[in-house]
């Protein structure tokens, strides 16, 4: 069974007179439980592809199926529900809610999913400890470094055990030691819970952890490497 499936996926941005083909005829199947890394030069369409899969942006044409549901025609509210139930998102910029502490940021998603107060507090603290933020739980984003904020964002994405985690350059702001901790955590989740991971990166270290590497250039898949 596929976790993600794209058919003839196109996304064209109109920039004045100019049409930018951010994705051009992408066909892609990702197995459930897969660990996939997207790479390629800047502007090659990594973020665009992740946004399409996450239902944040709608394709110009083509089909996308995520968690067994066609999402390319879905309504805004349905997409939000899908993200909440099945997806964890780590954005290229951390995007935390500034008025909430690290723990509250993590708990927020769990609460929307209906997790009880005790359980979500416990989970949030555990996960924050796992990403190395013990003792910083009650700080607001503004009181955390870029790397620390990124780790909070990762904790938020995985707290409720989603089926699919989409992470856009999750280690861009981390030192290599922390990056490694994070990747090990991802691998662990992937192995224990069959969580599917789709990451994008410029970092070779991360690519080493992936079982499948997909190279994009000018909105097309130019290489698809099996690393198992």
């Amino acid at each position: 069974m596929y976790s993600v499936s794209c058919r003839r996926l196109c996304k064209t941005f109109q920039q004045g007179e100019l049409a930018v083909h951010a994705l051009a005829d992408v066909d892609l199947d990702i197995d459930a439980g897969g660990f996939v890394c997207l790479f390629g030069p800047s502007g090659s369409g990594k973020t665009t592809l992740l946004n399409m899969i996450g239902g944040l942006d709608t394709p110009s044409s083509g089909e996308i199926t995520v968690a067994g549901q066609r999402i390319d025609q879905m309504k805004r509210a349905e997409l939000a529900r899908l993200r909440l139930k099945h997806l964890g998102f780590v954005f290229q910029s951390y995007n935390l809610i500034p008025v909430l502490s690290a723990r509250e940021n993590v708990e927020f998603v769990a609460q929307m999913q209906g997790m009880g107060a005790q359980q979500r507090k416990h989970k949030a603290l555990t996960i924050l400890a796992e990403v190395g933020l013990q003792g910083l739980e009650d700080r607001r984003p503004a009181e955390l470094s870029g790397g620390q904020q990124q780790r909070v964002a990762v904790a938020r994405a995985i707290v409720s055990g989603p089926e699919l985690v989409l992470a856009d350059e999750p280690t861009a702001n981390l030192d290599s030691a922390t990056a490694e901790i994070l990747m090990k955590l991802f691998v662990q989740l992937n192995q224990q819970h069959q969580t599917t991971f789709v990451l994008s990166t410029h970092d070779n270290l991360i690519m080493n952890y992936a079982r499948r590497l997909i190279k994009l250039r000018d909105g097309r898949i130019v290489e698809d490497i099996d690393q198992t």
């Binding site: 939000a80 993200r83 909440l84 927020f108 998603v109």
Partner: peptide, 8 residues
């Protein structure tokens, strides 16, 4: 908030 799954 919506990207994180909050209903519109």
């Amino acid at each position: 908030l919506q990207a994180l799954g909050m209903q519109p």
